[in-house]
Design a binder for these strands. Structure first.
Lengths: 225, 225
DNA sequence: GTCATTTCTTACACCTTGTAAAGATTACGG
DNA sequence: CCGTAATCTTTACAAGGTGTAAGAAATGAC
């Protein structure tokens, strides 16, 4: 994806490119309609310099998106997927993904409005979806997850439940902890999760060290109107 | 929301307004960056006429969104919510919603990028979310759904699983029927559904049931690579 | 120190949004 | 019918954004 086609890209140019991408990610995240001019000045360069690196505004956006995608994938790779119960690995994966790419909600929504052909779109999402898929398939093979549902569908379910959780947090209807616990519960249910070996699954596996019978999900429990 | 403040809006004006909104919905759905000029000509009027009805492009967009929201709400109200098992009512509701508002995916995504304050955003989504919530609460009261999870969270879960299903269909990875069945299964699991009276719900009930059960959904079953 | 790369400056053409005022039409009420 | 007011159209303008272009200045590489 980064061929040595260019014989010699000056260090100067790399610095500019990085600065532009940094500024783009930062500004576009808070205000998706930021002009190229604003991005350029924030990066300390001129608008023409931006156009020297990215042929169009749209290409700049996709480059910014690719950058945060890489970031998220790197974070996901940090969590080892093949250790322990698949359910735990899956939650680790979601957590890692949310900690990085989840910090750019506006940017991530902008992606779906870019006129990308389905192929390109799939290419972009593939790395993150593939990692989810691997864990889900492992869980299915060990019998931890329901094996009758297609992994692709379960990947979509996982991603969208993650969106639901972060959406509720953004809307201020849930705290991060409440959302995490609700996501935990609902995701494992949707996957048809059962305890892998001998692990007790009271309440789908309570989070460790969440003592205090009090405050065990204020919003999680139904206030019954 | 539509006060008679205007003493006399001529039939002429109403026709123009409707034509503009029609054109806006249609064009923006296929190409969200359509110019006001294009919308105007498609509606058979001039750009200034559009500005006579909508003070800005953004207001035009929100008006178009309100229009399809009304459409969806009307369709949802057509399905009676208080009859039969809550699970069935919920699926009817989702079906109705997907048949109408689900036809404008681009437009519905654009909504989330509009710089609306949380209050306005909530106002807009409230009608559809409220109807979901009512059915979910009814299911919780009858014991059909898990009463420990907050209705708000389950509403978010329902909406986002609906997105997952339509997303998989749009991506060409599932047929409408496959997606409907997968959504059915996963949604009821996530809600902690149990049979209301005597209806057999083999999943969630007992056995791993990995056995016989021949073809019940091509993509639904795991091809196991 | 030379040379190629990169950046800056300046300039242009085009499109889109939003505003404005005048005149031409059209619908509505009497 | 006919006048009046509402509505639409025409024409015009200002501002801001995107994309392109060319020459001069700088900066890094060797």
């Amino acid at each position: 994806m980064t061929p040595r086609q260019a014989p010699h890209r000056r260090a100067d140019a790399q610095r500019s490119r990085a600065a532009i991408l940094d500024a783009a990610v930062q500004l576009l995240n808070t205000h998706p309609d930021t002009s190229v001019e604003a991005i350029a000045t924030a990066a300390g360069v001129t608008r023409q310099t931006v156009y020297a690196h990215f042929p169009s505004r749209e290409q700049l956006l996709t480059a910014a998106l690719d950058r945060i995608t890489e970031e998220a994938v790197a974070a996901m790779d940090a969590a080892d997927l093949d250790t322990g119960p698949a359910a735990d690995a899956l939650l680790r994966l979601l957590d890692a993904s949310n900690r990085t790419a989840g910090q750019y909600p506006v940017l991530l929504q902008k992606i779906s409005l870019l006129p990308v052909d389905p192929h390109t779109d799939h290419e972009r999402h593939a790395p993150v979806a593939d990692r989810l898929k691997r864990v889900i398939q492992r869980g299915q093979e060990t019998g931890e997850f329901d094996g009758r549902l297609s992994p692709d569908w379960l990947v979509a379910v996982t991603i969208n439940l993650g969106h639901a959780a972060s959406g509720e947090v953004d809307a201020g209807r849930m705290s991060s902890e409440e959302a995490a616990e609700a996501l935990h519960t609902s995701l494992l249910r949707a996957l048809g999760a059962v305890a892998p070996t001998g692990t007790p699954t009271r309440e789908e596996g309570a989070p460790p060290a969440r003592s205090g019978a009090k405050a065990r999900g204020a919003k999680l429990r139904n206030p019954r109107k």
